[in-house]
Design a protein around this nucleic acid. Sequence first.
DNA 1: CTAGTATTCTAGCGGATACTAGAATGAGGT
DNA 2: ACCTCATTCTAGTATCCGCTAGAATACTAG
Lengths: 224, 224
Amino acid sequence: MEHREFKDRLYTQFARLGHAVSTPKRLELLDLLAQGEKTVEQLAEQSCTAIKNTSAHLRVLRQAGLVDFRREGVYVRYRLADEYVAEFLLALQSLGRQRYSEVREVVDAHLERRDEMEPIGPAELRRRLAAGDVTLLDVRPADEFTAGHIAGAISIPVDQLTARAATLPRGKKIVAYCRGPYCVMAVDAVQLLRRRGYRARRLTDGVPGWRARGYPVVRGSRAS
Amino acid sequence: MEHREFKDRLYTQFARLGHAVSTPKRLELLDLLAQGEKTVEQLAEQSCTAIKNTSAHLRVLRQAGLVDFRREGVYVRYRLADEYVAEFLLALQSLGRQRYSEVREVVDAHLERRDEMEPIGPAELRRRLAAGDVTLLDVRPADEFTAGHIAGAISIPVDQLTARAATLPRGKKIVAYCRGPYCVMAVDAVQLLRRRGYRARRLTDGVPGWRARGYPVVRGSRAS
DNA sequence: CTAGTATTCTAGCGGATACTAGAATGAGGT
DNA sequence: ACCTCATTCTAGTATCCGCTAGAATACTAG
């Protein structure tokens, strides 16, 4: 077969992608980067990995063309190479959730309270935002909010929520979101808010899932 | 961090998927299986791999939950676990094409004649099929046609095309398709048909891409 | 220039895995 | 029961890769 070499080359290229996402740590790093640009140090801390190790994984991701970086002063900031990488990540996790009962079991075991959060989907939230009858709360760290948040959201990182909950309007329902369906911050936030008497629910997705639907995402530190 | 174990478990699961598609041979096997059920022997032959080796790769794919199998007499027939696996494959290859100039270069170098084939996309083909002004030709092996083909297509495997080309209607335009955008069979078919005076074009996609759009796919050995 | 910090590079170790060859299993046919 | 054939399992080897620690690089501040 004269086509052998062609096929080998072609599938070798595609396998670069597979190789890049064949490791738990790299998938976690990509998920973090889907929230926005981050330094090596931030990535290492947030993924509980040694910096050297993080750097090595980032090197692999860079060689696979999934991430890009730029120097900014002393720091090196990494980011996803483009939005299609984020979409691919979503597709991978979607297939994982579908094919692996272990994923569902692990998530249910750790976020067992999830069903009680009355999770709301992106489509319904969009309608409610348009109707203006919900307060949308981004509980991620402030820099991730700045890097990109759902239009109309206000930012209160979950570790400041105890102190700042009182600033939230009492009457309206609150919807909290965080990094994505496997992130605990929104779950914690909803639980905290409910204990204080707010009517709070959890968004099933994070910014990447919201953006993938073509819904509006805003950059900047202040929601209007 | 108490969540560490949760995250590790979760991303370890997702990494199973990545690991499964981190090898050229496994990607090639999945692509072949996207055409329909095949025996180990067929897969080994069509991927130019030793049977033992093929079996080992299929084992990995099985453990990753991407393929399923059943015994049928002496043979073991493998198939994709479900349609979402095929969609994921398409997503992976789409990102690969987008991110890797090597993919485009390799494809262009090997299928250099591709642009001359006046490739037609699925959406346009669908309109033309509805209008009834094209003959749709499936040039894959007969068993892949039987396992699933585009509604309205007729089957002439590319290696029988020389003998059977005369049965094609002269007046209508012909659109040929094969396994997908990286398969050479349709390119060869179009070239052969044009030398004989037919007006032939090539479909940019195969059955998996057609199906993923929700367009009609038919099983069975005869197109009506 | 020097000092300090963030990040990358290099080398070594241990575990995983792709490939190969030989043995074993499982189903059908005689 | 026996034989045949498709497939899988087991064992062995070479290779790759993830982790770790020490050295080197790149930038900033003074």
